[in-house]
């Protein structure tokens, strides 16, 4: 039996409290600052909370467009990430063809190429495709990832061959098997992949900063970055903008939290 003295339980609770405070402190702080009327002291409990900073951020800061753009970019990018990775992983997991091993190694090797190193040729390619300053440019290079293909391949390999064979005897083609057998059985992995893609897409700053030029195309992080230091008459405005950027992704994450399993991270380490 594991001994668990009371003082230790106490230490654990204190630790949990400290860590939780560290994790949600900055977010709460942003809310507190953003909810206060402009005149009151910067750091104090908001006794008369106001939504004015939020409406200012929304209208004067022009966040409506970026919010829509961010939602589009995030949704499209996560759907594409799941679909393209699941498509690519299917033959890698289940079909025999020449060059399969080599191809998988090359795909894994792309994980070692950091976006930060290749931004220049990536940008030049986008220029040559005539996609500069479009939302397509924001999504396209990150519409599939080697990590996603790896995750899906792992999940597909866990699915018993017999299910696939049964479907085949019933006359199903490979695409039908992919859709009716593989995808449903790998659903938890696909959901985790979608969640990771969403988190990544929502907060991405470097790449949109490079390819987007006009403010009506900005995603939220780029737009909020532009707001910083711009509104001297209301220093709370960036804080309200930050809260508005934070709420959707936190809501999505809390809604999808059951797909956050430590086991998925064990896999990410191996890759």
């Amino acid at each position: 039996m594991e001994r668990r003295p009371t003082w230790l339980t106490l230490v654990m609770y204190v630790g949990a409290g400290l860590l939780a405070g560290l994790a949600i402190g900055p977010g709460l702080f942003l809310c507190v600052v953003a909810l206060q009327p402009a005149e009151s002291a910067f750091f104090s409990i908001p006794t008369e909370p106001t939504g004015k900073n939020f409406s200012d951020a929304w209208t004067k800061g022009g966040l409506a467009g970026p919010m829509v753009n961010s939602v589009i970019v995030t949704l499209v990018r996560s759907v594409l990430n799941v679909v393209l990775a699941a498509l690519a992983a299917y033959p890698l997991a289940r079909m025999k063809f020449r060059g399969r091993g080599a191809l998988f190694v090359i795909i894994l090797a792309t994980m070692m190429i950091p976006e930060q190193v290749i931004v220049v040729p990536m940008f030049r390619t986008i220029v040559q495709m005539g996609l500069v300053d479009t939302l397509i440019a924001v999504v396209l290079p990150f519409s599939v990832s080697a990590f996603g293909i790896y995750l899906c391949k792992q999940a597909f390999e866990q699915i018993p061959m017999s299910l696939e064979e049964a479907a085949r005897i019933d006359g199903a083609g490979s695409l039908q098997i992919w859709w009716h057998v593989m995808l449903p059985l790998a659903a938890p992995t696909l959901a985790t992949l979608a969640l990771f893609s969403m988190i990544g897409a929502w907060s991405e700053l470097l790449w949109p900063l490079i390819v987007l030029q006009s403010s009506d195309k900005y995603t939220l992080p780029v737009a909020v970055n532009q707001l910083l230091g711009q509104f001297a008459d209301n220093p709370r405005l960036p804080y309200a903008a930050a809260v508005l950027t934070l709420i959707p992704i936190v809501a999505a994450f809390v809604g999808a939290q059951r797909f956050l399993k430590p086991q998925m991270f064990a896999g990410s380490v191996k890759g």
């Binding site: 949990a16 860590l19 939780a20 900055p26 930050a242 950027t245 994450f253 809390v254 956050l260």
Partner: peptide, 25 residues
């Protein structure tokens, strides 16, 4: 589970949002 979710919140937080909070701190 909830502790895990709460401690994962910073990962979900966009860097720009985190940076604004920490700048003030």
């Amino acid at each position: 589970r909830w502790l895990r979710v709460v401690l994962f919140l910073p990962v979900v937080t966009p860097t720009i949002v985190a940076a604004i909070a920490w700048q003030a701190a």
